[in-house]
Amino acid sequence: MGPLIVNEIISQNTNLLLAFFIGIGFGFVLEQAGFSSSRKLAGMFYGYDATVLKVFFTGAITAALGLLFFSLFGWIEMDYVFVNPTYLGSTIVGGIVMGLGFILGGFCPGTSFCGAAIGKIDALVFVGGLFIGIFIFAEGFPLWQNLYLSGFMGDITISKALNISPGLFVFLLILVAVGMFWVAEWAEKKFPREEY
């Protein structure tokens, strides 16, 4: 059945329209969770606000579990779902650069758009920075093309890399996440915090 677009159940234009509605859901949830506030996001890294960890991991686990069950019931063909290809080198270096950007700017791209939508000027400036950063990357592309293509491993999943079943991996991930939630609740009580 799914993915609807690949199996030609819906048209290209419907797909784009649905993208808009998915975006509305995405933006609404991010803003409701408080991701439009940079101090709330940055709080993650000082222990006073672990909202990011809770929302992020609950979201990833819910989606991963949902996909596995959908695939179990035959509702979605996972072979047709996009699996981000792994390029070890560029993913790690890119992740480090993004991590620096996160602690300096207090947003990630998705959340900065949410912040900008409700009038946060710092978020708007961050969005401006995104444009500049991506433009620099595009213009200097030949300089880092080799790094960009380094460490290619294909569309590999983590369960395959660890040689365990996807179900078992998700179960372990859930155990880790639940453990982290408890630590997070403890940390939030220990470090002073206020709502922004």
């Binding site: 579990l65 069950f69 035959g74 063909e77 991930l173 859930i174």
Partner: peptide
Amino acid sequence: LILLGLIIAAVPENTTKPY
């Protein structure tokens, strides 16, 4: 989540191949 995780971990993998 733990309950659902247990179920999905216990399901034999080949049945998760849908087609």
